[in-house]
Structure formats: C-alpha cells, structure tokens
Design a protein around this nucleic acid. Structure first.
Lengths: 199, 199
DNA sequence: ATACTTCCGTATCGATCAGTACATAATTAG
DNA sequence: CTAATTATGTACTGATCGATACGGAAGTAT
C-alpha cells in the first residue's frame, strides 16, 4: 500500500545521484543550496528540506551512497577470503581505475570531499576522516593477516608498509585531478606492490 | 626617506604570517574576511583592502610567502648540484618533517589549500595546481638526470617512478592531518627510496 | 600654514548563505 | 463527502559573504 499524502514529484534517488556529483566536484562547503536545488531537478527549498533535512544530512546520505557505489573499490580491504596481497593490489588498482574515470568527477569523495572547512564543517571533516581511518585499518589488518599466514616475514615492518600504501592511496585523488593518467598510476601501483614483494 | 602619508599602524608582514596560518588551516574558500581581519590584528576592512587588494590577492601573497618559507622543502627538486637520488630523498624527508610539525597546521598549503572550490575559486585552484605540477616536473627532471649520469639504468620506467613519488608526496598532507606520525611517514620514505634502488 | 598623500574607523553596499513560514495542491483513510 | 497526511511554490528570514563610500586622522612636502 502506497503511503498517504501527496506523492513526491521528483525522483529522490536521482536527486541524490546528482547531488553526489556536485559534492564530488566541489566538496562540502563551497557547494551551495542553490546549486544543489538546481541540479536536483530545480526543486524548491521546501521540497529539499522536507526530503533531506539539511545540507549536512544530505551530504551524509551522499557519502553513504558513494560508499555503496564507486567507493566500494576499497571494500576488498575487509575481505578475508582472498590473499592479503591480492586485497591490497585490487584496492589500489580499482581505486586508480575509478578515480581516473572521466565519466564522473576525478579523485575520491572520501579523500577530497571535505578538506577545506571552516568551523562549521568540522563534523563533516570528521565523518570523512573516519572513513579514511577505517580504510587505513583495513590495510593494517591485511598486513597482519599476511604475517600470520606467512605471506610476509615476521620481521617485516608492516606499520611502515601500511603507512606507505595508505599515503599512496591518499595521493591518488590529487594526482588524478592534476591530470596524471591511469597508465602512470597503474604502473605506480606496480611499484608499490614491489615493496610488498621485497618486504 | 620615509614615504609620505599617514604611516600604517599594523605590521604588514606579521599580518601576512597570521593569514598564512589561517589559510593553511582552512583553505582558501572557507576562510572569511572577518576571520582574516581578526587574526591580522583586528584591522578594518579599509586597511585590509588598501594593504592587500582582495582576498585572492592576499592568498597569492600568502602562497608566495609559504613557498619561500615552509614550502622551500621542495626546492631541492630543482637543485642540480646534488645527486638526483639525494634530491628526491631530501625532498620527501623534509616534506614529511615539515608537514608533521605541530608548531603550524599539518599538511601542505600547496597540496590542500584550494581543493574544495566553487566556480569562483577556479583561479586559485589553478595557481596551486601549477605549483604542484612544477614539483612533479622537478621530480621527472631529477630522474632523467639520474638516467643520463648512469645513476639509474637506461630502461628504468622513470615516468612510473616519478608518478609514484609524486603521488606519495601528495598523500603526505592527508596522512599527516589524519594523525599518521612522522616516524611511520619517514619509514615510508625509506620504502619509496627502496623503489629507486630496485629500478 | 597649506597642500598632498596615505591610512584609519564606521557605516554600509548588493549578493548570497542556509533555512523557514504559510497557504495550497494532491493523495489516502474513513 | 470530510479528515488526515504529505508534498508543493512563493516569499521571506537573519546572518554572513566579499567589497566599498565617505569623512577624518596622521604623517610628509613646500
């Protein structure tokens, strides 16, 4: 049974997708309500707030959507059914592929979505930071697992290797936005993985 | 001979320094004139515009100041009087040291100063992008020099190695802001330099 | 002294910010 | 039908954005 009341006249999901693109391009703070309303189908402020609550709540929904779509390239970091080395390499290769895909904004929303924030944007900055730290945690856990199953030697400096991988992963976003191509970045992933083999 | 007219009542250089700190913390767009005027000694809008022209012009001055101070850690990329390997390693180690120094905002202004921009911030974004691409160019030139003097083999994939180093360099800013310590990041530099030795 | 130059503080500009008030339209429930 | 519910469009809120107008203050030049 459809719920009561006047039906919504715009596609909520489609509006979320276009909001995602805008936030991805510009980040949280410089993206204005007017811009959002316009790209979300020219909806009215009343419709916007009735459907999404506030700019920050919309952003949180957008981040969740991103994580379930393009951002799932990092999910493999938490997969314990493949080899640790495969998990890391797949994460990096998929991240490079996704972030250099010109069918959407370059770089990563979690990495770049809220880097320039005034005092009002602290909560949003923290939201994305936690997402990044989750990924860093996933990297570390895969390395620990690698040591525990003998895929990496006991004396490997896995904290340093994890930091190296994490830092490289962070850097992909800016590199992509600065025009570095997928080819060079995939070759760079090959370099990073060579560190694994030498560890 | 002192120049004519009423003398300025605030220290222009000191005001620039405090503006640098604020832009470094928050980035270009979310930093407001009110915030700037306050930290710059509580100067009036008239004094601000007379002395600095506009928010964007102030930012450009701030970037130049940063480049001449903290940002000079990358100048070594253009030094042809030391070995190419030393140039790269010094750049990375100094960058890590500077960007994790808690006496000023974490990360790098050139990397993070204008990542979230609306349509009005394009010029500033481009300014920092060009600074980053200059550094990337310096990395590439050092690698070419290394090949030319036999410090790297002829068949080394220097474009891939340059992209790896550049991407890592980009990533240091976010890593530092997310709380990764200097120790782990210096160890990561050691890892990156291992790629050089294996090239 | 007077002109000239430069900086100062206050008050304010139009535009835009995120968010709301209010009356109305469209649907379901009874 | 009426009531209840939910969405709609228009108009508008106070706050803040970057930037300016204007008159006076403080210095130098002659």
């Amino acid at each position: 049974m459809a719920r009561t009341g006047r039906p919504r006249e715009f596609d909520r999901q489609a509006a979320l997708e276009t909001a995602l693109v805008l936030f991805w391009q510009q980040g949280f703070e410089p993206t204005s309500l007017n811009q959002l309303k316009e790209v979300m189908g020219g909806i009215s402020p009343t419709s916007f707030y009735a459907a999404f609550g506030s700019k920050e709540q919309l952003f949180r929904e957008v981040v969740a959507l991103y994580r379930s779509q393009q951002g799932q390239v990092t999910d493999v970091l938490f997969d314990e059914n493949i080899s640790p080395r495969q998990a890391i390499e797949q994460c990096l290769r998929q991240s490079v592929h996704m972030q250099t895909d010109k069918t959407h904004p370059l770089g990563c929303l979690v990495t770049m979505g809220a880097t320039n924030c005034g005092p009002t944007g602290d909560a949003v900055m923290q939201l994305l930071r936690e997402e990044r730290l989750k990924n860093f945690g996933g990297i570390k856990r895969q390395l620990e697992r690698a040591v525990s199953i003998g895929a990496l030697p006991e004396n490997a400096d896995i904290l340093a290797l994890a930091a190296t991988i994490n830092t490289f992963l962070n850097g992909i976003s800016l590199a992509a936005r600065d025009g570095v191509g997928e080819k060079e970045l995939q070759a760079s992933v090959g370099n990073i993985m060579r560190l694994w083999d030498a560890a």
